[in-house]
Design a protein around this nucleic acid. Structure first.
Lengths: 256, 256
DNA sequence: ACCTGAACACCGTTCAAGT
DNA sequence: ACCTGAACACCGTTCAAGT
């Protein structure tokens, strides 16, 4: 089911004993996997490619890992250790940072993670993603949202709303960045290229009119990257405003 | 770059001339592709598998389609034709439906599309997704958001916020549904199984306390599916409240 | 305990050849 | 114009064998 659920963890971890002939190790294997996935993408990643990178036969890796999917799960949880999480024990009253600030920071960290490692989003979709680092991340998310003062059912809605948005947004963004890199273009070049290669279906002319209006409707949005930053922030603003509105609404109902 | 951008459309479409020896056709090929992707998932889909389904050699398909990716783009745009879009020309004043209602319906249609065809989200990530049906869908989204009365830059934020949320949420949901089907379990069975196989790391005990509180915090959320419906609606509530708050805020600033 | 080699059943795609 | 077969360079994984 998952390497993190019992039974699949049967292969010993062999992390601390680095006197192997080839110096192999789950740690080193996971390292190399992440590096390869970053460099060449999920589609090109293979056990044979990884093994050759490690200077070893393809089958050696199978001593440390039961299956390719298990290895991908390890890599996935590995990168979920990267985001800086808000200090969880701000027990003192005065200096506890505002939930808005925490939310923005955590969202930015999550976005950066996915854009840095675009393969991450494909894997979170395909696996359960319940490794230790992923759990710590989820915990941080829950804590931040709990700080809003929403009721528990609405906290669940808010978590879904904010972090599935970040997931979706960053997935598209990350894949686009990767495509540009593969084509050897900057994002602006790629974007202009795609735009000019576009033969708009005549019956959709008005669609593009509205779209282009919206595209140029942002001051300070000269580059693709700037536009994406602005959109991302605008969406977070919307969600924060939504949370505030629901908090106020619940307070009013309670006061009645 | 994409089958929808010039140059890649070089292979003739051959849609109308169905007198081929094998009765092959882009239409029929795309049909079979969607059916196979639905039944067995993106990972198991292959040109050879598809060809055998069509009663034909693997290489026959390449007469109609330049590459596997092109075919996947065709399948992707095909299913984007499924959602019912709001009637776009509600020009009469009185009976134009509320944007809130339109938004909920379009979000529900999008969610249903992704859950029905979980491979869709992987592909929207990997391709540009600028086929005619996808464009019509985007157009509908833009029209609905334009109905909120937000300023253009904020419309962009709102589109990202709502529809990337739906994308992210439904992606996870769809993949989970698919996993359950492959394992031959109901969603509740799979969920309980995963939960019981779970060996919680001791230092995360408090995480799970809070998590379990939240899990059981929903009345009427007995089944996994009910809970997901409730969370989805709660998230949409939040986003709609956010849009309303920003509309009000902009109105106030304009009035000053 | 750790690593290898050969083998199996697959891939996407090219290319020359058939009708 | 449409379809096939053989071939190339790949996959993940099994299994018996080496040290």
């Amino acid at each position: 089911m998952s390497i993190w659920l019992e039974d699949s963890g049967s292969k010993p971890s062999r992390s601390r004993r680095s006197e192997q002939p080839s110096g192999l190790d789950r740690e080193r294997i996971t390292d190399a996997t992440v590096k390869l996935l970053d460099a060449e993408g999920l589609a090109k990643f293979s056990m044979r490619r990884l093994a050759s990178e490690l200077g070893v036969t393809a089958m050696s890796v199978y001593w440390y890992v039961a299956t390719k999917d298990d290895l991908l799960e390890l890599a996935l949880d590995r990168v979920f250790g990267e985001p800086r999480l808000p200090a969880t024990d701000a027990t003192e009253e005065g200096d506890a940072p505002d939930w808005r600030e925490q939310l923005r920071e955590l969202a930015a960290e999550y976005r950066a993670l996915i854009v840095r490692h675009p393969w991450t989003s494909t894997l979170t979709g395909n696996f359960l993603n319940v490794g230790p680092n992923s759990l710590l991340f989820s915990h941080a998310v829950q804590k931040v949202i709990a700080g809003t003062g929403l009721s528990l059912p609405r906290q669940r809605g808010a978590i879904a709303s904010v972090f599935q948005f970040v997931y979706g947004y960053s997935t598209i963004e990350g894949h686009f960045v990767q495509r540009c890199a593969e084509a050897g273009m900057t994002q602006d070049e790629y974007f202009r290229e795609a735009m000019s290669a576009f033969r708009a279906p005549p019956e959709l002319a008005d669609t593009f009119q509205h779209t282009e209006e919206m595209m140029s409707a942002i001051e300070g949005g000269e580059s693709v990257e700037q536009m994406r930053d602005l959109d991302f922030q605008a969406a977070l603003d919307l969600q924060i405003a939504g949370i505030e509105a629901l908090v106020a609404q619940e307070a009013k109902q309670a006061g009645r």
